[in-house]
Nucleic acid binder design. Structure first.
Lengths: 149, 149
DNA sequence: TAAATATTCCGGCAAACAACCGGGATTTGT
DNA sequence: ACAAATCCCGGTTGTTTGCCGGAATATTTA
């Protein structure tokens, strides 16, 4: 019932990737596709949505790429999920049930659940996830390591 | 992000409808489609899944219909949701990310969320929702009332 | 016993959606 | 000027969702 689309997954991985592998220079979409193993043409669309949502900041031209638009701790998982699913369910006309039971009981119930979930997502920041990654011993993928034996 | 399919919504409404408008005789699919305003051919499929999941019990023949297979308090919302979404995501191979960040951080995180949500759904019974309906002043749709002026 | 009435089982189909690709336009560093 | 990156926009493909119809089965009733 908690179905995150591939796009949302991508958005999450991308932002965390950028946050975790942050350097002075911005991170390019190419690097992310290499690390995450996803079609880059699709990734770009997701990145675009994240930029428009004010989560990432795109840097054009050679040596360009993406960096976080604000501090890690100020970006919540909820922000990312909302940004990723914005294009999907816009113009999604809610099929509201006509029955009294549906309209006054199950719909509000679902609504409440949704709000609880969202609150849960807002409470977790990218910084939290990065710390968890560091604690789990995930290594930052410094691409200069590619030139060592 | 919490996307309940129309089928799941239908399943919820149907079970609560049956529980709330329970009489000695079973409730027919026809009545539910009338109250909920949904295509009955589609409703039947959902009912079928609920029967196979052991939530409803189908009674064939004239004067047939559906009734709950167990007590209201022993049927949780989680049971219903799981039954409705069973056919959907069977054979849905999880697209697991190849990156370390994806596999060790975001996937477990999502998993945890899912489990929390499910636990939340398991904790709420059909009886709870019926009580809420009664408290909200929802009237049981006794169809014998159709013959009064 | 026959007919009527309900669920049950089966296959299929069309619209909607998710995932993805391609052609450029735009910005920017060298 | 050129190359490298993001940005923008539209189209395509495959899967899923919602829904329909025919027929089989069980059960009540006349």
């Amino acid at each position: 019932m908690l179905r995150l689309s591939r796009k949302t997954l991508l958005a999450l991985e991308a932002v965390i990737d950028i946050a975790f592998n942050a350097r002075p220079e911005p991170v390019q979409a190419k690097e992310i596709t290499a690390r995450q193993g996803v079609p880059q043409r699709y990734l770009e669309q997701v990145m675009q949505q994240l930029v428009r949502a004010g989560i990432l900041k795109g840097v054009r031209g050679p040596r360009g790429g993406y960096r976080l638009a604000k501090e890690r701790r100020r970006i919540s998982v909820g922000d990312i999920v909302r940004a990723a699913e914005l294009a999907e369910d816009e113009s999604t006309e809610e099929v509201l049930p006509k029955s009294e039971l549906g309209a006054r009981i199950v719909t509000p119930f679902i609504q409440t659940l949704q709000e609880e979930l969202m609150a849960r997502l807002e409470a977790i920041s990218v910084e939290d996830l990065c710390q968890k990654a560091r604690a789990a011993g995930v290594t930052a993928d410094d691409h200069t390591a590619d030139f060592t034996i």
